[in-house]
Design a protein around this nucleic acid. Structure first.
Length: 289
DNA sequence: ACCTCGTTTCCTGGTT
DNA sequence: AAACCAGGAAACGAGG
């Protein structure tokens, strides 16, 4: 993993991200760097002087993103609304709270947090992954959205509702595993072994308003039509995620156009900066969340 | 070593 | 004129 050497980004002279970023994000750009909002901020967020206990909701959110990225787990595979918490609430969560909130991914999150709480840095201990949870692509389930599955065997029925002490957020407990108890099905599936694809990155920005302060907006939510508001800022974020400081909207949009053929995106004629999710794009519909 | 995939980079030409 | 769109061509890095 390549850690960012400093908070200074190399931005092409022609690009002024400052002009495009909303004020609410400038602090992140200036104080930490763009990686605070993507996946490359590994060590900065949890520096020694910033114990998870002290995290803001935003930082909890970033930790979540980062941990999922690290494990190449699709960000949409867990219900993010279950993590609408600050650091103190997060630290109060038990292992079972995590598995309830995020299914089998919960154990990964729990271990990550435990490492951070006790070691101050993630990954200093071996990963504890109950049941040898694996991530894999499931050919039967090409959708990037994974059904949120509970592991009923992890806890007794009485435990199921005894989470109020430390975990108040609006948990919507998923119904027990829909059908087959096939162990393969209950594994966390790795969405794509090379990390998040561009369209998923775009989708995730759209789906998470708190990390999307005016970068991209829905034009027609039900139809999957969206518009770039800050094209160069999005490109910079994408570049940051890919460790490529010379990314531009020009190049990002070329990659977007390649999606037309694969029907991940559909053309929207005559409208600048407007795209539409196609039949092969998953996870953007409200009903899929 | 080779292939595939998903971009990235560069480009020409067209449109808003 | 600047910004954006369309898409060809080649290259690239990672993974298989």
């Amino acid at each position: 993993m390549v850690l960012q050497a400093s908070g200074v980004m190399s931005i092409p002279a022609t690009v002024s991200v400052d002009n495009q970023l909303p004020p609410s994000w400038m602090a992140h750009y200036n104080c930490a760097d763009v990686s605070m909002v993507t996946s490359g901020y590994t060590s900065r967020l949890w520096s020694q002087d910033h114990h998870p206990q002290n995290w803001t909701k935003y930082q909890v959110w970033e930790w979540l993103q980062q941990t999922l990225d690290m494990h190449q787990i699709d960000a949409t595979s867990i219900p993010f609304q279950n993590f609408d918490l600050d650091g103190r609430q997060l630290c109060n969560m038990s292992f079972q709270d995590f598995t309830r909130a995020a299914g089998s991914v919960g154990s990964i999150l729990f271990q990550s947090l435990t490492d951070l709480k006790w070691n101050g840095q993630y990954g200093q201990t071996d990963m504890f992954i109950p049941g040898d949870i694996k991530t894999e692509i499931d050919a039967d389930f090409p959708c990037s959205i994974l059904p949120f599955k509970e592991e009923p065997s992890f806890y007794s029925p009485s435990e199921l509702f005894d989470i109020k002490s430390s975990f108040q957020p609006n948990i919507t407990l998923a119904s027990p595993a829909p059908s087959s108890p096939d162990p393969k099905r209950s594994q966390v599936k790795r969405h794509n072994p090379r990390g998040t694809h561009l369209w998923e990155f775009i989708r995730d920005i759209l789906l998470n308003p708190e990390r999307n302060p005016g970068l991209i907006k829905w034009e027609d939510r039900s139809e999957g039509v969206f518009r770039f508001l800050k094209s160069e800022a999005v490109a910079q974020l994408w570049g940051k995620k890919k460790n490529n400081s010379s990314m531009t909207y020009e190049k990002l949009s070329r990659a977007m156009r390649y999606y037309y053929k694969r029907e991940i995106l559909e053309r929207v004629d005559g409208r600048r900066l407007v795209y539409k999710f196609g039949r092969n794009a998953r996870g953007w519909r409200e009903s899929e969340k």
